[in-house]
Amino acid sequence: MKILVPVKRVIDYNVKPRVKADGTGVDLSNVKMSMNPFDEIAVEEAIRLKEAGKAEEIIAVSVGPAKAQETLRTALAMGADRAILVESETEVEPLAVAKILKGIVEAENPGLVILGKQAIDDDSNQTGQMLAALLGRPQGTFASKVEIEGDSVSVTREVDGGLETVKLSLPAIVTTDLRLNEPRYASLPNIMKAKKKPLDTKSAADYGVDTAPRLKTLKVTEPAVRSAGIKVPDVDTLVAKLKDMGIAN
C-alpha cells in the first residue's frame, strides 16, 4: 500500500504573525517558515505504518511556491520516499488543493491519504474532508489513533465530548489531531540522504485544475487588542474583585 501525505509550508508556529500595514494580508517576508505541525504528525504516522509493515511507499506532496521544496525535503528527511511539488506562486484555496490531490490520488492509487486537520495559517480545516468527498471515499478526521485491519482502517477521533471510533473501508482519508503521535526529528545523515530522493515538479494544469480563487480577501485587520489590566497583590484583593463582579458571595 502507498500512503500519500500532503504537507503545507506555513509560518512557524513560534512566530507571532503581523498584519501588513496596507491590510492586504499577513507579512510573511523574512519570517521563519516550517512544515505545518499537523502535517509533521501526518508524515510521522505514515512512517510508523511503513515501519510496522503496513505500507510500502510514502509520497509527500505540497502545493505551493518553489520554496515548498524545503518542506518536502523535511518530509523526505523524516522518512518519506519521494515527493511531488505542485508549483503555484499564487495562493491555492483548499477546494483547489483538494482537486489537485484528487488528480494525484488517481495517478498513484494510495490506500491512505493522511493530511493535517488544519493548517495553522488559514485555519480552514477543510482540505481532507473535501478530498474525501471528491473521491467518494470515507474520512476519519481529527485522528488520535489509526489502526489498519485488513481492508479497513479504524480511526479514533477527538470529538467535542471525548473520543469516537469509526471504521472506514480502504482506500480512505485521515486527518491528524495533535495527540496522534510525536513527530521525530530528522537526523543529519537522513537530511543528507533526503537531498538525493526524487522530487517531481508539476503544475495545477497537469491535473486539469483551475486554481482561480472563489473567495476574495477584501481586507485583513488586526483583532481588537486586549490591554493588560491590573495586578492584585493578594488573594483577599482578588476575592474582593470577584465580589464586585457579583460572582462570589
Partner: peptide
C-alpha cells in the same frame, strides 16, 4: 464550527463545488 460541523460541512462544500468559509 463544532467537531461534527467541521467534519460534515467541507464534505458538503466539495460536493457542491463551493469554497467553504470557515468559522
Amino acid at each position: 464550527a463544532t467537531t461534527n460541523g467541521k467534519n460534515i460541512a467541507p464534505r458538503v462544500a466539495a460536493l457542491l463545488d463551493v469554497m467553504q468559509i470557515s468559522d
